[in-house]
Design a protein around this nucleic acid. Structure first.
Length: 837
RNA sequence: GCGGGAGUAGCCGAACUGGUACAGGCGCCCGACUUAAAAUCGGGUACCCCUCGGGGUAUGUGGGUUCGAAUCCCACCUCCCGCACCA
């Protein structure tokens, strides 16, 4: 057979073609990509830039399946874009500060640094074994002194600009951790997202970033981002913008005579149009005026209520929902409703939060359900100021409608009434239009050791002083003892604690709080652009070259915290002049991949249902593991881990290997036959299809297309005529090229065997389908009668409408369903004719 | 409660702008190869009826629009995710 001869020339005989050995192949190619620096890219690279970034991982040891999924998608894009001619920036680093290392230190006494470094090495080697390629020269780790220096430098610039400040605040204290948490780290039920302990409120001096200064921008700039809708929605809700008015109400006695001191209460409302319906006012229990204005006879009841509100955890406050009678107390004070000049009683209630608006509200039970419930529980009057629709049987009415019981607002619809009420407040100098945000400032200080120290000192005479830039980084000492005291070991370390004041040289004490690890992850993507910069966190030119990240990939669990903080940092650094002023957003495109489940449950360490990737790397290999993650379902869907599925992927790669080493059927040289040409057309269609699927992130169907193509190729090769040499080469080479980003090792190996060692698959250009050769010889024309399929014909793709209709009407099967002449015929040649009798 | 998303075979899923419902994989069945098994290769695989030509029913449920609906519209059910006293 001619085919056997041709084969023997290239592969030293079919019998000698080696079996597929993933471990051997993968180790060798991984070594080569590293040693040749295949995916290193310089800032002066002449190719058009493209920045692909996976969220840098917390190093918890060897990679888990979530990492594998994440980094498989990232690596695919890096390789695909590279084959498309881009100079792709693909950096990686480690989010290496954090609680687990410190907890491990408490248990074993091992220093968090040595612990962390060991975990990083484990994770790093898993990433390499997965075949993920990076420019390792650019690696950053949060705990590197060089990185810390710039984290602290940024903090000091924020401090100078007033974007970082210190304030005493009731903060979320987790007794389990034990540290302060950001609002975002407290779950809805009032427990700590990490330890699950019930979070307490404590008053402490803490550091904050003034993220609220950027609230409006953070909201507005969401519009220009190519992000999943749900992430945008989550951010929008988190920022929680609401428009309304603030105004003052003077304290008075029960008859409405203004009090002598002239004190007043400021309230925020989104419904100034309902002001005529105010029947009481409410202060948050923590409101500063509570003590002052409480009447003597109510003092005891109020004090008891305030005490309980402070002591009651969030969780209990929620569980007491419904029993509103116990959730409020009358202060004995009154304020004047400026709209009516009528006095209304001032109550305390825990459903009013000090942290939002002014911590005080006007209560309008007619148009607010909570106020309605409270009024009912405490026997307070209810006045409707918006006419509910006829037949309204609900309680508070929050919809649109004409104002009523509202004097000069009567008859106006809600929007118009709001505008008029606000105008009136402003004219009379009683209040003004206001915008409120739900977003709070970012509490960043943590009472932990294993984090980036906050670079300030407290001088006995000068007060708080920033550490000089030239003294950065402030590093935690190594010789510390980890004791389960619940306090940072820094508090007991004299050498760290005692220092001199940078301003006066006098005695000073160092800040012992460290920064939330979200600070580290808020700018690492910038450092990657120029990790060599010695004068700034990133050079302006480096950032300009690569930023914004073209494709950011990570888990949806970071939809709010990390992504909001990173956006804030980018805007602030742009305003500080560190990066270009018009670089307002860090991540142009975001993709959030689904999580891996096992038996319907989220795979996680705490559930103890982790499936370790290592076992698969040791058996079926990295390529099979990658292929499984791509194939198992849409990338943004959660997926179930399935051992059988990965076997299917492994089987496919075995088939690919046999086809790629000419172990399937027979191959010969000949003039192309119809079948040969049809395989070539199918090859062009494969290229087109995979390209399309890649561009729309439909990797599972891209894999399916390759499998389908391979199945067809097998049938062709094993057919009586065998395969034609050039046709088979084109088919196999094309298949290897389109599979290269997905299964980089086995394809590179096969390519080298077919084309020689100097011919690197991953240096090839992405193939292009020839538009003229995509067409199939025949297509199936479906003939329907009233929308039901009755017959099929194989027709040329360029069949005319008239021919298609004639063919359809000539069909016996169609005629039996027709009663005489058809009423109507809809033709969509060459695929469909629908006959309507 | 508010916001977002999803319900297609035994399972995971395809079907991109309304046009052959179910590509691909898993599982299962049959066959080839084998002394045998594994591996491999080929074929089959929604349900019901059937005179074996076919016919009917199927995309969570019920309506609607259309020549034609998984796809568009209305109502409802179920599940997942986020927020949740935000005035």
């Amino acid at each position: 057979m001619g085919g056997a001869e041709a084969t023997s020339l290239r592969f030293f005989g079919m019998a000698q073609a080696p079996p597929y050995d993933p471990q051997e192949i993968e180790a060798r190619w991984q070594e080569r990509w590293l040693s040749e620096g295949t995916y290193e890219v310089d800032n002066a690279d002449p190719r058009p830039p493209y920045y692909v970034l996976c969220m840098y991982p917390y190093p918890s040891g060897p990679a888990h399946m979530g990492h594998v999924r994440n980094y498989t998608f990232g690596d695919l894009i890096v390789r695909y874009r590279t084959m498309n001619g881009y100079g792709v920036l693909s950096p990686i680093g480690f989010d290496s500060f954090g609680l687990p290392a410190e907890n491990a230190a408490l248990k074993s006494g091992e220093h968090p640094r040595t612990f962390t470094d060991a975990r990083i090495e484990e994770l790093r080697s898993s990433l390499i074994r997965l075949g993920a390629v990076y420019d390792w020269r650019r690696q950053v780790r949060s705990h590197d002194p060089d990185y810390m220096r710039w984290t602290q430098w940024i903090f000091l610039r924020f401090l100078e600009r007033g974007l970082a400040y210190r304030a005493s605040a009731p903060v979320n204290w987790c007794p389990g951790c034990p540290t302060v948490l950001a609002n975002e780290q407290v779950l809805a039920d009032g427990t700590c997202e990490r330890s699950g302990d019930v979070v307490e409120k404590r008053d402490l001096e803490q550091w904050f970033f003034r993220i609220t200064e950027y609230a409006q921008q953070l909201l507005d700039d969401l519009d220009g981002l190519d992000w999943p809708e749900r992430v945008v929605t989550m951010q929008r809700n988190w920022i929680g913008r609401s428009e309304g008015a603030e105004f003052e109400m003077r304290f008075c006695d029960a008859d409405g005579s203004p009090e002598a001191q002239g004190r007043s209460l400021r309230v925020f409302t989104t419904r100034p149009d309902t002001s005529f319906g105010m029947t009481y006012a409410v202060l948050a229990p923590e409101h500063p005026l509570v003590d002052e204005v409480t009447a003597p006879e109510q003092r005891e009841a109020v004090a008891a209520f305030v005490r309980r509100a402070r002591e009651t955890s969030e969780i209990d406050r929620l569980s007491s929902e419904g029993s509103l009678a116990t959730r409020g107390v009358f202060t004995g004070a009154y304020v004047l409703n400026p709209f009516t000049q009528a006095p209304v009683p001032v109550w305390l209630a825990d459903y009013v939060l000090m942290g939002y608006g002014t911590g005080a509200i006007m209560a309008v039970p007619g148009e607010d359900q909570r106020d309605w419930d409270f009024a009912r529980a405490h026997d307070l009057p209810i006045i409707r100021t918006v006419e509910p629709p006829p037949g309204w049987e609900g309680e508070a009415y929050t919809g649109d409608g004409p104002a009523t019981n509202s004097e000069w607002l009567d008859g106006l619809e809600v929007a118009a009434a709001k505008a008029k009420a606000i105008a009136w407040l402003e004219e009379n100098d009683l209040g003004s239009r206001t915008v409120n945000f739900r977003l709070r400032d970012w509490l960043l200080s943590r009472q932990r050791f294993w984090g980036c120290p906050i670079p300030v000192v407290y001088c006995e005479s000068c007060g708080m002083q920033p550490v000089a830039d030239s003294d950065l980084p402030v590093l935690a000492p190594d010789d510390v003892e980890f004791l389960p005291t619940g306090e940072s070991p820094l508090l007991d370390h004299a050498g760290f604690l005692h220092t001199t004041c940078p301003a006066c040289g006098g005695v000073a004490r160092r800040e012992t709080d460290t920064m939330d690890t979200f600070v580290d992850s808020s700018w690492y993507f910038l450092r990657f652009c120029d990790p060599w910069s010695e004068t700034a966190p990133v050079s302006t030119s480096g950032a300009s070259r690569w930023m914004p990240v073209d494709q950011y990939i990570g888990g949806v669990e970071h939809a709010i915290l990390h992504l909001m903080y990173a956006r804030f940092f980018t805007k602030a650094l742009a305003d500080l002049g560190v990066i270009e002023p018009d670089l307002r957003e860090p991540f142009q495109r975001l993709f959030t991949q689904g999580m891996i489940r096992l038996g319907g449950e989220k795979m996680s360490k705490s559930k103890g249902n982790l499936v370790a990737p290592e076992a698969y790397l040791d058996t079926v290999g990295a390529d099979s593991l990658r292929l499984f993650h791509l194939f198992v379902g849409p990338p943004d869907d959660d997926v179930d881990w399935d051992d059988h599925g990965i076997e299917g992927c492994s089987r496919f790669l075995q088939r690919l290997w046999r086809a790629g080493t000419d172990q399937v059927g027979t191959v010969s040289d000949r003039e192309p036959t119809r079948d040969d040409l049809s395989v070539e057309a199918a090859t062009h269609r494969l290229i087109r299809r995979v390209t399309d699927e890649f561009d729309r992130w439909s990797y599972n169907t891209a894999v399916a297309a390759c499998m389908e193509f391979t199945n067809d190729l097998y049938r062709y090769l094993q057919g009586d005529a065998g395969g034609r040499r050039d046709t088979v080469d084109f088919a196999v080479d094309s298949l290897l090229l389109v599979l290269a980003p997905m299964v980089p090792h086995v394809t590179a190996e096969l390519w080298e065997r077919r084309h020689g060692a100097e011919n690197h698959l991953h240096a090839q250009r992405w193939p292009e389908a020839d538009a003229d050769r995509l067409v199939e010889e025949t297509v199936t024309l479906v003939v329907q009668v009233r929308g039901k399929v009755r017959d099929r014909f194989e027709v040329p793709p360029d069949i005319s409408e008239a021919d298609a209709v004639a063919l359809a009407l000539a069909s016996d099967k169609v005629q039996t369903h027709l009663d005489g002449e058809p009423k109507r015929v809809i033709a969509r040649p060459p695929r469909l004719v629908n006959v309507v009798p």
